[in-house]
Computed example of a mutant assay.
Amino acid sequence: MQRVLITGAAKGIGRGVAEAFAAQGAKLVLMDVDAAGLEGAAAALAGKAAAVEICVGSVASLADCNRAAALAQSRFGGLDVLSHNAGIQTYGTVESTDEALWDRTLDVNLKGAFLVSKACMPMIRASRGNVVHISSVQGVASQAGVTAYSVSKHGLIGLVRSMAVDYAPYGVRVNGIAPGSVDTPLLRNAVDAAPDPAAVYAEIDGMHPLGRMAAPSEIASVVVFLASDNASFITGEVVRVDGGMRARLGGSPKTQ
């Protein structure tokens, strides 16, 4: 029975991960800044997971991360898996991104991954467990106008690889996932604010050779796999779950 700490668990990918581990009867600590969302997630998972605890807090705060880790220690005696999904989407170029937005993006998306890993690693090391970080396809390439976000996700991939090397001698595996577009409240809030949301949704679907966005459950299933014994020889890897997005070059010149 795995003991799992899940960040960003109130909604989106994190909520999907919580549901996937609950279906396996895991013991869960759910962490998010959204108190009402956490309570709703915990209520929905009651009777499915072996146990559910919630910790309202930000991954950008070491004190909050330490509280979540302490909760796992006190309630479950440790941790086997850290599933880090918390993140924010921000927009701007080097010129249009102000210092406050840059700092907030890096604090949540990159520093937050470092802090929650730091807080949980003693227990993960003791259990010879697993860490799975959610990056993005924009951690391996970049769209226009997402400088801070893209940098944060590129940096997160570096964190995955360095942690994998550092903790392999302890039997700990550290991996990442680079999703394409995922149907989450984060994405829908951004698209619905556009002048023509339907056109934006059509463009997003068309970016993926499979012709659609992913569901959170499709990302969650890869998290569960990477944290399982079926992935026992995989570490330092970043798995693209992007519907073929990065497999296709832009443009289709007709030569025949």
Rank of each mutant, 00 (worst) to 15 (best):
R188G: 02
G145A: 12
S150W: 04
V165C: 12
V182F: 04
Y201M: 12
G155V: 04
A194S: 15
A164I: 05
P179Y: 07
V200Q: 13
S162M: 02
G176F: 07
D166A: 15
S162F: 00
M213G: 00
Y149P: 03
G211P: 00
G176D: 03
V172Q: 08
D205N: 14
Y167C: 01
L159N: 00
M207E: 14
I157T: 08
L210T: 07
P209Y: 11
G206Q: 07
V200G: 05
L210A: 08
A194N: 13
G176V: 05
M163V: 00
Y170V: 03
P169H: 10
L156G: 02
L210P: 00
Y149Q: 07
Y149V: 03
S150T: 15
N175H: 07
L156N: 02
M163T: 01
K153Q: 12
R188K: 11
V172I: 06
Y149K: 05
Y149W: 15
G158E: 09
S181V: 00
T147Q: 11
V200A: 09
P209Q: 11
G158Y: 15
V191K: 15
A202H: 07
G206V: 01
G180P: 00
G171M: 10
A193Q: 15
L186K: 01
V151Q: 13
I177E: 02
V200Y: 13
D192Q: 15
D183A: 06
R161F: 02
G211W: 04
S162V: 04
H208C: 10
D196H: 14
Y167H: 08
A202D: 13
P185R: 05
R173G: 08
Y167K: 01
D196M: 13
A190M: 03
P185Y: 14
Y201Q: 10
P179D: 10
L187Y: 03
Y170N: 09
P179S: 05
V200T: 05
I204Y: 13
L159Q: 00
V151I: 10
I204H: 09
P209T: 14
D205F: 13
D205H: 11
N189C: 09
I204L: 13
G176L: 02
A178F: 06
G145K: 15
L210S: 09
V151D: 08
H154V: 07
G155T: 03
P195R: 09
N189Y: 09
E203Q: 14
A164S: 13
R188H: 14
A164L: 13
R188V: 01
A148E: 08
A193G: 15
I204V: 11
G176N: 06
L210D: 08
